[in-house]
Simulated scan of single mutants.
Amino acid sequence: MYFIPFIVFVITQRLSELYIARRNEKWLRSEGAIEYGRGHYPYIVALHTLFIISIIVEYILRPSLSMDFVFLLLFILLLGFKFWALSSLGKYWNTKIFRVPGSGPVKKGPYKLFKHPNYFIVICEIVIIPMVFHLYYTAVIFTVLNAIMLTVRIRVENKVWAK
């Protein structure tokens, strides 16, 4: 009963993020930003698309699963932290890696405390979202796949900001 509104919300949230990223990309490019990590970006898109599909398929295969309100609360708290992180980056936030020549990393909000708070959020989302409905297979499989992907992603991003 709760699954459909929940998954629709998650999909809408993800699509909204892509819309914001696209808008920010236009601004970043107008500022002369250079894109990095193009080679791995399609894999990130595929990973997150398959993540949503896996949630839906696993839920369909195990439909008697109830909602876990503790994980739902954690998800809601995580959304607040995500909003803080993304709003701290403002127009610099993107799903791709961009750097405006002469600019440095943003050092406000959670970025004062952590080097990669948005990736911490993504790690938590990959675990928490499926766990709202006890979807253990999706949580475990995509946690491993995401760890591999983030290893590549963070390595590229660290090189960009070390220049």
Rank of each mutant, 00 (worst) to 15 (best):
I126S: 03
L78R: 00
P101D: 05
V57P: 04
L89I: 12
L79R: 01
S66H: 07
H116Y: 02
P63V: 10
T143S: 15
K91D: 06
G80N: 01
S66G: 11
L150D: 12
F69Q: 05
I128Q: 00
H48G: 05
Y43D: 05
A85C: 14
T49Y: 08
G90H: 06
I128L: 00
S103I: 06
F142Q: 11
I121S: 01
F114V: 03
I76M: 11
F133Y: 15
E35P: 11
I44L: 15
P63W: 09
V106F: 08
L79V: 01
I34N: 04
H134R: 15
S103M: 11
H48Y: 10
L77S: 03
A147G: 13
K82W: 12
I141G: 02
S103C: 09
I141V: 15
S64T: 14
V57Q: 06
T143G: 15
V57K: 11
M149P: 06
Y119V: 02
I52G: 02
I60D: 07
F81M: 07
G104H: 12
Y111H: 10
I34W: 03
L150F: 13
I56G: 12
Y111F: 11
I44S: 15
P110G: 09
S88W: 12
K108F: 10
P105M: 15
T151S: 12
L47C: 12
M131I: 01
I34F: 05
M67T: 02
K112D: 00
Y92H: 14
P42H: 07
S88A: 15
G37Q: 03
A139I: 03
N94T: 13
F81Y: 12
F71H: 00
I126P: 05
R62C: 12
L135C: 08
V122Y: 05
F133T: 13
